[in-house]
Simulated scan of single mutants.
Amino acid sequence: MTVFFEDVSEGDRSEYGSYEVTREEIIRFAEQYDPQWFHVDEERIERESPYGGLIASGWHTAAMTMRMLVEAEFRDAASVGAKGTDELRWWRPVRPGDTLRIETEIVETVPESPERGLVRVRVETYDGDDERVFSMIGNVMYLTRDG
């Protein structure tokens, strides 16, 4: 069933996930998109890291969050992209072996035209210890049923 703008309401909450983070994925992503030493250089990490080991790029954490959102929420939604994000935060490092999950809450719905509305959704990502590692408010465009 396709979820249209009219089908979501302020206060709607959902929980999704389970995304297993691997060492190999952390390094592969960082080598391509964020090659800072604390994401890729394991010898230096062992000697100098203030994080106590290898950590994922924050942008990788955002990408893993997006993957879970697409698989669980946007796959059946009449979503046509986003206008951006607000309040983007990285709260704690993500590490190899962490299993991530997300919680969402619709914070606002704004009709924009007969064809489309804006859904503001708070997204929080948690690790296996239920520690918040990432959060944002996405500004997602949804088609209307009759648009």
Rank of each mutant, 00 (worst) to 15 (best):
G52W: 04
G52K: 04
G53T: 02
G53S: 06
G53E: 01
L54F: 05
L54M: 07
L54V: 00
I55S: 11
A56M: 05
A56Y: 04
A56F: 01
S57V: 02
S57P: 12
S57Y: 05
G58N: 08
W59K: 00
H60S: 07
A63D: 08
A63L: 05
T65D: 08
T65A: 11
T65M: 08
M66L: 13
M66P: 00
R67S: 14
M68W: 09
L69K: 03
L69I: 08
V70R: 00
E71Y: 03
E71P: 06
A72R: 12
A72P: 02
A72D: 15
A72H: 15
F74W: 13
R75P: 00
D76S: 13
D76I: 00
A78I: 06
S79H: 00
V80T: 14
V80A: 14
V80I: 15
G81D: 06
G81S: 07
G81L: 03
A82L: 03
K83S: 13
G84W: 07
G84H: 07
T85D: 13
D86P: 07
D86K: 07
E87W: 03
E87S: 13
E87D: 15
E87M: 05
L88Y: 01
R89D: 14
R89N: 14
W90Q: 10
W90S: 10
W90V: 07
W91C: 12
W91V: 13
W91L: 14
W91E: 15
P93D: 13
P93A: 11
P93T: 07
V94L: 10
V94F: 09
R95M: 05
R95V: 05
P96Y: 04
P96K: 01
G97Q: 10
G97V: 03
G97T: 06
G97P: 04
G97I: 02
D98C: 03
D98P: 06
D98E: 12
T99P: 02
L100W: 04
L100F: 07
L100Y: 02
L100N: 04
R101H: 14
R101D: 06
I102D: 05
E103P: 01
T104H: 06
T104G: 13
E105L: 05
I106G: 08
E108A: 15
E108F: 01
E108W: 04
T109K: 14
V110A: 07
P111Y: 09
E112I: 06
E112D: 02
E112Q: 12
E112K: 12
S113R: 10
G117I: 05
G117W: 08
G117F: 11
L118K: 09
L118R: 11
L118I: 10
L118H: 09
V119K: 00
V119L: 04
R120L: 14
V121G: 01
R122V: 02
D127W: 02
